[in-house]
Amino acid sequence: MQPLVLSGLINHGVVEEHNLPAELAIGERAMATWSLETGSSGGFARFQVQFPPGIIAESLENAGASFTFENGRSKFIWIETAPDQTINLKMKLTATKDFHGGIITQWFSYISDGTRQDVEFEPHHVSVKNQSEPQANEPEVNTEFSIARTWFSEGPNLGRVTLSISGHEPGQFLKIEETIGTQCSAEPLEDSGASLRDVYDQSILYVWQQAPSSAFELQYRVMGQSEDCWASIVGQASTVIDGAVQEIQIAALETPSENPDPENPGSDELVQLLRSPLPSKTTDSNGTSTGAPIRFKVQVLASHQRVNATFFAQEYQFTRPLVIEEHEEWIKYITGSFDAYKSARDARVEIRESHDLPGPFVTAYSGNRRITVQEALLISKQNWIP
């Protein structure tokens, strides 16, 4: 994060509204509509919608655009649009058996002074709708969330960790984070399709927006100057089961005994199954952990070029303090910092109603690291507010 840098760009006040569903049942079809205000942009334009796996989109109204749908992404392309035009679009969405919920992202692109400009809209979460209760003759499913950690020595100061995860609810948010000692390092080996995999400081993090459909395993390798790197490993996991947050800790492994069977390296493994709840954490009145503070902010604009403070005041009558985040090729403009999601949401509503900014939305952070709003709500035990 850094102070706002002065330079120039115009985003022409593109505004979007939609009625995307909050949930879909397997096999369900739903109609979704979009209304795009092009502002003063005009000319070539493209609107894209990226759906999570398992959703098929068909165009019903395209406002004269060409339409394609490939790899879960819908594209509407116009060779020419008029300034101050309202574009109305409609699609039919079908949830297949591969749909497990997820995030829908949307953005609008246009040409200004020979340069492509991209306006990123607020992401939309869609979940799987429960269609019916299980039949009486169906076997009862064990939903006790548990993780077994296995350590296998691969040599001096080197070992492989396997985490076996079971009892989670498929399609729900799941986060697993392991922490190792300061003299040790880790490298991921198997992530089972995690949405996010990150190694930072002394931690290795896995996040799934939609947890796998059955029990699965993770693997990572631990290396270091210390012979007892295995002893430094601690971790925790959190997920949602039947609408409630469940957390477990993954405690440090006990001291390994000498391998009683040198011909069978598998007997040198250490297994520990942990179902105990996380130790209590210091929290504020909103239930937010003070160990790694959760903050909510509002993103008001994202582009590929910098803009100056005068631009925001002149174009949008927006004079709140701003900071810049740079991610890949995007420059994102952020305002505010709140403990409670509701406060950030109220700020977003006020900004949207008072300024003609292109789709401000709430963002979330764990310390200085940006995370999903869903993850932040889960960690801080706060409720989502539409």
Rank of each mutant, 00 (worst) to 15 (best):
V5E: 15
G8K: 10
G8P: 10
E17K: 03
H18N: 11
L20Q: 09
A25L: 15
G27S: 11
A30W: 03
M31S: 13
A32S: 07
S40W: 05
G42W: 02
G42T: 08
G43E: 13
A45P: 01
R46P: 10
F47T: 04
I56S: 01
I56E: 00
A63Q: 05
A63R: 05
G64M: 15
A65V: 15
A65N: 08
F69K: 03
N71M: 15
G72S: 01
T81W: 13
A82N: 03
P83Q: 06
K90R: 09
T94F: 06
T94K: 02
D98F: 06
D98I: 04
G102Q: 01
I104Q: 06
W107G: 10
W107I: 14
R116L: 10
Q117G: 07
F121P: 10
P123E: 11
Q135A: 07
P139E: 07
T143C: 07
F145P: 03
F145V: 06
N157G: 12
L158V: 07
L163P: 02
S164K: 06
S164R: 15
H168T: 02
E177G: 04
E187L: 08
D191A: 03
V207M: 12
W208I: 10
S213W: 01
F216C: 00
F216W: 00
E217W: 05
A231F: 07
T255L: 05
P262C: 03
P265A: 04
G266M: 05
E269Y: 08
V271S: 03
V271D: 11
P277G: 03
L278S: 06
D284R: 11
S289T: 11
S289A: 12
V298C: 02
Q299D: 14
A302V: 08
Q305A: 14
R306F: 13
R306Y: 15
V307W: 12
Y316C: 09
F318P: 01
E326I: 11
T335Q: 08
S337E: 09
F338K: 02
I351P: 01
S354V: 14
H355Y: 07
L357V: 12
V362E: 00
N368E: 08
I371Y: 03
Q374S: 14
E375A: 10
A376P: 02
Q382K: 06
P386L: 08
